[in-house]
Write a protein that binds this DNA or RNA. Structure first.
Lengths: 189, 189
DNA sequence: ACCTGAACACCGTTCAAGT
DNA sequence: ACCTGAACACCGTTCAAGT
């Protein structure tokens, strides 16, 4: 129905194959059944369309993570599950992941808002885990940044093939996050 | 002298401002004082030129890290210094960093080789730190992946402005790495 | 071996015009 | 309000030709 939604959907599909260079406004218009510059009636420029794609994907995955977290009983399991979903996102849709956490020259309010909401949710999980004794005391924001950095770094390195070099020491991103959580739990006691 | 070296140098300069989209072969040729398609005599295509830029930067920073590490006395200080340089690289030249650790469709042997050398050096630092009691026992490759994931994730998030820059809980990438090393040290005893 | 100029197919963006 | 077609300046890549 909405041409605007169609454009975002088509752009996301093109992004998944081929990456950002494959998202040409002409191809987006063509696949959406409009002229090659109809997108300019809905988005200021290509960057704005990509920002809409990124914001939409970030919101969607934040919701998926929140839903999965609610099903968990322990705070530690919830935190592990949240990071696991974060990593799965990066591995399944690496181009979207790289886009969302890429370098934005033009600021997108909806993208910033979605990122802040996701960050706040993670801090809440960390606070709950601290209260249950699964994480050491200390500034929860700082601890949340540490946990997310491991998840983000491991996911990014894995998605770009810079982590999974073969050999006996090979550990997947989820394992590395769980390693961290285990070390933190021993440090908490 | 060498046109090939000039092309790499010019491309790096263009990359630092404007990112990958600003690296056009026509502008590279123009700034290097050759025709707009002379680069094709030295590189198969644009991707190959970018791979040469990335490999060169990775080798250079690996050397810088190794030099800095040799000046340190304790294994823990060396490891912290290495990760600090890694982070400084990401923050000072974010476009090069994103390029080096980006998604490569075409494989570049020299880039792969440089990455493996850097990884091996990090594992060596981790083993030394384990021997000195600063890090817990266990597979050094896996532990190195954990340390590098924090450094990589924190650096990438900071370079892209996604690491909660404001607020009391604000912690820089270096702090997060040191937080991890401290937790690991307590877990080692 | 290295470089040039013309050419082709493409792309982002703008503009005047249409309903 | 939304869309179209033509147009402009650009870009990656190829090719025939030059030294």
């Amino acid at each position: 129905m909405g041409t605007r939604e169609d454009l975002i959907e088509v752009a996301t599909r093109l992004l998944d194959n081929g990456g950002v260079p494959a998202v040409t406004l002409r191809e987006v218009g063509r696949l959406a059944g409009v002229s090659h510059n109809a997108p300019y009636k809905h988005f200021a420029d290509k960057q704005a369309l990509l920002a809409a794609v990124a914001a939409r994907d970030l919101e969607r995955h934040s919701m998926l993570i929140q839903q999965a977290v609610r099903r968990k009983r322990s705070a530690k399991a919830a935190l592990s599950e949240a990071m696991g979903r974060y990593i799965a996102w990066a591995l399944e849709y690496p181009e979207r992941f790289r886009l969302v956490f890429g370098r934005w020259t033009t600021e997108s309010p909806e993208l910033t808002a979605a990122a802040e909401t996701a960050q706040a949710g993670l801090v809440g999980l960390v606070e709950a885990a601290q209260a249950s004794g699964a994480l050491p005391a200390g500034d929860p924001v700082r601890l949340a940044s540490l946990v997310r950095s491991v998840a983000h770094g491991a996911a990014d390195l894995a998605a770009t093939g810079h982590l999974s070099a073969t050999g006996k020491g090979h550990a997947g991103p989820e394992q590395l996050v769980d390693d961290l959580l285990t070390y933190l739990e021993t440090a908490a006691t």
